[in-house]
Design a protein around this nucleic acid. Structure first.
Length: 125
RNA sequence: CGGAGGGCCCGAAGCGGUCGCUCCCCGGCAUCGUGCCGGGGAGAGGAAAGUCCGGACUCCAACGGGCGGCAUGCUCGCCAACGGCGAGGCGCGGCGACGCGACGGAAAGUGCAACAGAGAGCAGACCGCCGGGACCCUCGCGGGUUCCGGUAAGGGUGAAACGGUGCGGUAAGAGCGCACCGCCCGGGCGGCGACGACCCGGGGCACGGCAAACCCCAUGCGGAGCAAGACCAAAUAGGGGAGCGUGACGCGGGCGGCCCGUCCCGCUCCGCCGGGAAGUCCGGCGGCGCGCUCCCGGGUAGGUUGCUGGAGGCCGGCGGCAACGCCGGCUCGAGAGGAAUGACCGCAACCGGCUUCGGCCGGCACAGAAUCCGGCUUACCGGGCCCUCCGACCC
RNA sequence: GCCCCCGUCGUCUAGCCCGGUCCAGGACAUCGCCCUUUCAAGGCGGUAACACGGGUUCGAAUCCCGUCGGGGGUA
């Protein structure tokens, strides 16, 4: 079951995203966080057997186009990241900072990759 | 050729790759719901924006109406409706094509107008002009000072000063009188109408501005919003109902050193009926409390639905100046839900800069559906089509 | 999605309803001068703003319309 869910491809189905307000609240309340220049990363071990991704963007980041572009970049980077298969089963929340509006894609991907690499190894058992 | 005015349309846009997301259809596998694999199809805009108006739809309220409040404001028409649109009238701007206009009412009422100025509303005498009285100067003509009166033609102030020009008239003046122009009122004429100003009659002119000041008049408006609303419905707590069991061979405390206990004290369901001599005994009915089981309804999380085929597009014909309407045919173009429509690469266009002309570098707007429509407003790289006006030159 | 409020010197504000007296007043800050051996305090003087664009009016910070920005409420 676990190996079936962890398909080795670059797919990111809806099942592996955070989709509940309570999921986000749990992540903020009980999880740890890492700060980057463009982004804040919240994370918390989950029981799903695979990492799940959530994204938040407040209106301070920019207009709808800017916010949505950053969301798509985040999904793209997470989906194609080479270290994704090695990630522990965490719920992750990526929250943009206002400075992210002016970032270029390569710059953004480098930062996100660095933050993901800094996650602890353990995860849930 | 140059400049200008108006209208309409397109708008990450062309091709090829790699990896992905959402929905639908087909096939296969497993399956209680559903999930996985393969194939195919579809997947942001002219403004999706601002949320400034108007509707559809849904719920709430309601017998009907008024007051208040808000909005609109030349006329006629179009429209489901509108504060929108189309024609027309009037005013203003422009040589012109054309553009702009909150454009009802100031002879209903109440108000406002700083400063300047004599005076700011049915006004006003500062200078000036004219007449008269008194006093002074002068031989006299005349002049000066002052008082009373007349006068709105002139000066001056102001954003604005109570028709204009000319002639008569007068002490000087004045619509005081006359002519022309303007204005007002009534009637006729043209127009559905706003209005026009051709005609007739009357009036010497009374009617300044501001209603995006209060206000008056006319017309319109019940409230909320798809997170509306509908259906299914966990866990926990609570509500209602049914059935069964239970409410004394019990519990607590004291004493006898402790245990035990035939000792003492307290608590112990209620009502009615029947049996027994009687009781804390037995049986029945009703109520109350507790326990267990089952059922019912409300409702939260969550799920499903509303959810996209509609005042819909395209083509043609007819009516209308037009907005638009009618008829016929064809066609279906996103439906997410912490929210998909993406990222990267290689060529080719276009624009800008550099260029030792081979190329190199950079850019490619405004902006992202959230129930759906009709408008308005605002933002915007670049491009296409049509009509019209003015100027110059040529024929 | 719906609704409401607010934009005035560098900062906090008054004036707005009911237009003129406003080239917009006050406080703190800042600059110059005086006072003091010096600093502070004090005194005198100066610089400095009506978010933006239209409109109404003789005249707009004020009234009206539209943009832009900020804040808040609600499901």
């Amino acid at each position: 079951m676990l190996s079936a869910a962890r398909a080795p491809g670059e797919s990111l189905p809806r099942r592996e995203t955070l989709r509940r307000g309570s999921d986000y609240q749990r992540c903020y309340r009980s999880g740890a966080r890492r700060q980057g220049a463009l982004v804040t990363l919240h994370f918390l071990p989950n029981e799903e057997g695979c990492p799940r991704l959530g994204i938040t963007a407040s209106r301070k980041v920019g207009d709808a186009v800017a916010r949505h572009r950053l969301k798509r970049w985040t999904r793209e980077c997470f989906r194609r990241s080479p270290r994704r298969a090695a990630l522990p089963a965490f719920d992750l929340v990526v929250h943009f900072k206002p400075g992210a509006r002016a970032a270029a894609f390569a710059e953004f991907r480098a930062e996100l990759d660095r933050l993901l690499a800094g996650l602890p190894r353990g995860g849930s058992r």
